[in-house]
Nucleic acid binder design. Structure first.
Lengths: 578, 578
DNA sequence: GTGTCGGCTCTAAGCCGACAA
DNA sequence: TTGTCGGCTTAGAGCCGACAC
């Protein structure tokens, strides 16, 4: 049922996963979550995980104590009764359901460690729009609060918590360390052939091949010096080209090289190369240290974006919306130090200006709820590991004929199971907050993107996507295709934030590379329970609960197992009192 | 019962307060808040505020609909029954109590406007330590989250919300506009005589006189160019000198001038003047444009703080605590651009070094829970309206013999009713967050201080303290002394945040001066209901409530009437999904 | 083997007047 | 006049086996 294989088959670490403790996971039924009764425990599950009952009694029962991720103990009455006999959790169950706010479709997971201790976690079902206060999405305050919190944390070189719902979102920055290292050190050049695991909805473990056509880099004004390169690829299989054209370096296995000329045969590339400034395809660079043309300078002087310079001052999030919003002041010129264009918006040079005209300004609301714009940047100047940044909010429906503004989802309304392109979404000016002194600046970008999130399990060994990756043996995507899949409506496409900076944690087993100006890469290990606790304890929002009542905006979210989005709408606020 | 007089008797505005609509306020009893029953409405109150019932019926009843500050409608069944007959709110009442989390001792307020609409608000009782998650107080994340939220808002010239509990905290920055203007424009010099309303616990409306002995200014590294001057005073009445030695310019009425020499006769001044650098007492300046000695430079060279320079790098809040905290990195050198001392720590010059030695570093926790340090700054250089800043966390108990580090509460464990000194509390390095470009920087400081909060009503016309001030006709302090007063233990002294920047709102009736680099001054008008809504709607944390369940950390606080502190513990977090 | 339902118990919410302060 | 209490009703939480898939 649950595949416990680990991803890195070549790993030397002791694969504690092989000796996985007893556990089970059950999707909650209507009966399980109703107030009418308790929780029906699958027989095998109860026998595996729970201490044995004395079946000689007429109604064998015992009290179970299980700890959740936060160390909170939950007590349940476990009884074996009914005709036919079955295992049930009665007293205590409804409290758990209520406190965790579980609904039918969510899943609960029990796990018994070697010493007999019982743990439990929850995994929420994907809920369209999920009861989130809409203000969170369209709200500038939320954006900026999150931004500033993170920025502050980074400026202090402190930590910040990430609330992460693996099944609901793609977090490309959560990458096995080896994969990341291999990705950024292996030489990748334009023309490199590669293969990559790619999971279609119906055909898991498909191995696709393609050619690297470009090495992306972001407009340096937005995400300077990021190590997170973005590779634009062309797949040998045409079907793939409709789904994904961008990958992260660590997602692919280089398998050879292709002459620049053969790349040109691609219709898409022909189109792209029509522009006046093109990359030099024979640039051979490791992905981690690319050295490409200084596109920024050339663009600046070539005035490709003539008439669009104001773009540099207009926040895609605030944008016109902000200007037209009474009482709000567009402050983008406070954030962007100097007038500039966004070179990131010009690829290929002959195309983006058109695309941008009339669309370049992307108000927050439009971006969030109705993703329609996609900006990309390629082949920017590179000093060591260069900047790359992607604005992706989806594409205008019906415009997918233009491959350069094509969302990977454009042609698959229900999404494909593994979308692993390293797009980072449309970014507001405010996304860039500078901290620290002139000598020691740090920057943080949080961006949002539109994504589908359905996924299927996958055992691949070199799978950079997250839907196929197992955080600790568990597939992070759906355990199994749901019988009645809740198809995310195109309108209700997912929105998430990701960020470039993450926290560094020296503890063994997992860590996240805090990367001032570098890529955000989280490293996860293989030990399931260790990560169960360690990763989870780091990757969540924990708002202290106050004696049952949630008077302080309390909530506990079971992070990594948790699919339900939890957003603390923290309008900019000050508490005046303790 | 409730004095509806306004403060500014000379105001030309239509004093809508005179025609105050019908209203009543009742402190909730145990019965009112128990689940056992409803709400017992005082007869007069019901007759005044509620639509009349048909008393011919055996059990007259009706449905009442009242809006709270947030526009939320609350429905109550109003019934007249019992033997003897009385007015009760039954159905709907418990919902209200639960949602608002009211307890016995809290108060509810009903108000009927001219058009018959019913409004209601709540005022929470003072609760010691108030169930606040302790992590909020001692938590660096909370601090910095708040800081960064505000900083971000200011950088965007947007708004941020202030959660303000008038009875529980002093917000010196909430000042009538005229008072503020008068304060900063009237010429105040060292030696100026003044009078000021001052409310002792037992002797309200006492008018005290004194002499301005210093004009405070903050260490420019922390709060540059603040207009909020701080006047150090010596009272004619010696009793006063134990309670308060610092006032804001708008708190006093200048009444004359004193020769510099006569000031010197003060023992305290003698002590102060023993230092090498003293203010020039004949500096005659308007409070809003003082020009004093550059203490900073002279101190820097005089090396008064020799051996203490590391203070400049050590956050009073992070302090040693941060250094000794494993895993945390002291980032103060990232925030403070260059090595410097804190001139604010050196007054008088011959005294503070001693005080600071061994105590200068004030970890956050110690500061919050056990306020023991007080740093002050005086007579800094002035360009226009100059900086002033005060670090105040209280004083070491038993050290109050040192008047310069004497908290106003040092000698009154239960506090005095009106503490209106403009102290700003001990400030963390992180308190200063720079935003914007080099050309257009802005800074924001949030600070914390230790305060007692009991208060008594006061009708004064020139009362800068808040306990005596009426926000909209209602005294912001206790309506009446509670029969069984919950004495805040000295240990549980109040902690609050205040900030320099506030939001600007052009609307008539009230506004807050957003003050980039300037003083934080809120202007309030006289119309009760207008302010009731307007001010309150701005001065609160509003965390969206989600359909009854507080799954998203929801809560609504009724700000200005609300005494219970609400702190959103927003650890630095990122939500990855909607 | 297990999801859902009707039946049942029991707790607590909540309405009432009695009674006393 | 109004705070608190005991009595009472009632809704719903929650335990049970029946039953069906």
């Amino acid at each position: 049922m649950i595949n416990l294989d680990v991803i890195e088959e070549e790993g030397e670490e002791s694969l504690a996963l092989r000796s996985t403790p007893h556990m089970f996971c059950k999707t909650l039924t209507a009966s399980d979550t109703s107030t009418h009764g308790g929780f029906s425990v699958p027989r095998r599950a109860a026998e595996d995980c729970f201490p044995p009952l004395d079946y000689k009694l007429q109604r064998p029962s015992q009290e179970l104590i299980a700890k959740d991720l936060h160390g909170v103990e939950w007590r349940f009455r476990h009884i074996y009764r009914g005709q036919p006999r079955r295992h049930l959790l009665t007293t205590g169950w409804s409290i758990f359901v209520n406190q965790k706010n579980l609904v039918s479709g969510d899943a609960v997971l029990f796990l018994r460690s070697e010493n007999g201790e019982l743990r439990l976690g929850i995994r929420r079902a994907l809920r369209p729009r999920n009861g989130l206060p809409s203000s969170v999405i369209g709200n500038q305050n939320s954006y900026s609060s999150i931004l500033s919190s993170v920025a502050n944390a980074i400026s202090r070189r402190s930590t910040f918590d990430v609330f992460y719902s693996p099944r609901a979102t793609h977090a490309e920055f959560v990458v096995p360390y080896k994969m990341y290292i291999a990705g950024i050190t292996s030489p990748i050049c334009i023309g490199s052939r590669f293969k990559m695991r790619y999971d279609m909805e119906d055909a898991p473990e498909r191995r696709c091949t393609g050619v690297v056509t470009r090495i992306g880099d972001l407009d340096p004004y937005r995400w300077p010096k990021s190590k997170w390169k973005c590779l634009k690829v062309q797949w040998d299989d045409d079907i793939m080209n409709n789904h994904q054209e961008r990958v992260s370096p660590w997602e692919i296995e280089p398998s050879g090289s292709l002459s620049p000329f053969s790349i040109q045969h691609s219709p898409r590339l022909k189109k792209a190369r029509a522009g006046p400034q093109m990359a030099q395809p024979d640039n051979l660079v490791p992905a981690g240290a690319v050295g490409l043309i200084d596109f920024e300078e050339s663009l600046r002087s070539s005035k490709v974006l003539q008439g669009q310079e104001n773009l540099g001052f207009t926040s895609p999030l605030l944008g016109v919306g902000a200007i037209s919003c009474p009482g709000k002041i567009n402050i983008s010129d406070n954030v962007i130090e100097k007038p500039t264009i966004f070179p990131g918006f010009v690829e290929p040079a002959d195309m983006f200006p058109k695309v941008l005209q009339g669309q370049e300004v992307c108000p927050l609301k439009a971006l969030s709820r109705n993703p329609e714009y996609c900006f990309g940047s390629w082949e920017n100047p590179s000093r060591g590991l260069q900047d790359f940044y992607f604005s992706l909010g989806g594409i205008p429906r019906g415009s997918s004929s233009n491959p350069l503004i094509t969302s990977p989802l454009a042609n698959s309304p229900r999404g494909i199971s593994s979308i692993r392109s390293p797009y980072i979404a449309c970014e507001d000016d405010r996304g860039r907050v500078k901290f620290g002194t002139e000598d020691n600046p740090s920057s943080i970008i949080i961006s949002s993107s539109s994504r589908e999130t359905e996924g299927t399990p996958n055992n691949g060994s070199f799978n950079g996507g997250f839907s196929g990756y197992k955080l600790f043996g568990f597939p992070l995507a759906s355990e199994r295709p749901s019988p009645s899949p809740p198809p995310p409506t195109p309108q209700a496409s997912e929105q998430h934030f990701c960020m470039e900076g993450l926290l560094k944690d020296p503890r063994k087993g997992w860590q996240v590379l805090y990367t001032d100006r570098e890529s955000a890469v989280m490293v996860v290990g293989d030990d399931p329970w260790h990560e169960f606790c360690e990763v989870a304890s780091k990757m969540h929002i924990y708002i202290q609960e106050e004696a049952g009542k949630m008077t302080s905006g309390a909530m506990i979210s079971d992070s990594y197992l948790d699919q339900s989005p939890v957003v603390i709408e923290q309008s900019n606020c000050i508490s005046l009192q303790t």
